[in-house]
């Protein structure tokens, strides 16, 4: 039982860590393009790749998490969790 909670906690932590890293990398790349004004094609590539990743990582960090005992039924299809 304890190991199950630890495993779930690890998984949630992994998502949080990965999203935070992605958020920081996106912000750094966008700031790099803003401050150092590299070649045009690099700016286009940074804008097209890192603006969506910025929004994605923000979403993964801000999204609400379900309670542990309800988590399983929320991801079952068809969803009849309520």
């Amino acid at each position: 039982m304890f190991s199950l909670f630890v495993h779930e906690g690890e998984k949630m932590n992994k998502t949080k860590v990965a999203s935070s890293i992605l958020l920081v990398v996106s912000i750094i790349m966008i700031l790099y393009a803003l401050i150092f004004t590299p070649a045009d094609w690099i700016v286009y590539a940074i804008a097209i790749i890192f603006i969506p990743f910025f929004i994605l990582s923000l979403g993964l960090l801000t999204m609400a998490k379900p309670k542990n005992d309800e988590k399983e039924e929320r991801i079952q299809e068809p969803f009849i969790g309520y």
Binding site: L58, G59, T62, M63, A64, K65, P66, R74, I75, Q76, E77, F79
Partner: peptide, 11 residues
């Protein structure tokens, strides 16, 4: 919607 619960279905 960014603050709502976002479940990713198993399927």
């Amino acid at each position: 919607f960014f603050f709502k619960e976002s479940s990713f279905p198993k399927t």
